[in-house]
Amino acid sequence: MSSDSIRHTIKHFGVQKRKLPSSLHKKPSVLPAVEAPHPGSSYNPSYVDHQDLLHQIAEKELEFIKQEEHLDRVTTKMFKKIPQNKKEEYLLREMSEGLPTKQTTNLKSAEEDDNEEDLSITMANSKPVKNVKKTLVQRRKQREQKQAAYTRKMMKINKKIVSDIYKLKNFEQQIEIKEKKLEFLRQKRMMKRERESLMPKTLSKTKFEPLDPDFQLAEELTGNLRNCKPSMSLLKDRYKSLQQRNIIAPAIIKLKRDKAKVKKFVKPDHKINLDAVKLRLNKV
């Protein structure tokens, strides 16, 4: 086959090759699929490693408790507790706040009358605005003033440009300072990006929650393979790992689909009233 016919056949009969998105061969996260285990998670760990692991976990837990306490203090404890018997009383008082009571109504009505009178006065004071137009001379003068101001401004700028030549050193310094600042900011941004590359990204509205760390207490560790106890499930670990590596979006797993509840009823015609039926039977 000639090259032309090959091209033709490929174009019209073969499967065309699509360009793949470059992201297909990139991993969405820098984290490894299987992370190296902590030496303390050995089935028979050395004392130091095990203590190190426990210490890490305890520290995390303490932080968590502290956070919880803070939230409690900032939200729940800020509100006063209301005893049950006073609840209605408070509610009534709160709801009736600002409503006209008998004493206040008389005073208020008098004030309102005054206000009405004032309004009528202001209405009378307003005058129609006269449409004043500028004369040609005025316009010309304004234009000339504007022009003069502009030329003055330009003069000033030109003068400054000339005089700037003697300030080169100063400018250099300024530029240096600016560059230094920019460099610092760039460095900071890079650091931030590096830090964030290890964190899971926000892919959906549910937040990623890391798995509770896996550990066994000293009492649970038996030191031989035969009596080794099962710990956390590996499947959960894998699932969370996929989420952490931005491969699947974290989601709340719904087991049952929400369906609108259909109200069921029997048509009145089809209802069978057993008592009535019995009565009728008895009559017969």
Binding site: P32, A33, V34, A36, C228, P230, S233, L234, L235, K236, R238, Y239, I248, A251, I253, L255
Partner: peptide, 24 residues
């Protein structure tokens, strides 16, 4: 290549609302 082979314990059913089995 690093991989994990689970211990040989008997199968324990998973809590359903923790892992999306369909996805896995």
């Amino acid at each position: 290549i690093t991989w994990i082979m689970p211990h040989h314990f008997c199968f324990e059913p998973q809590a359903k609302n923790e892992v999306d089995f369909k996805v896995m």
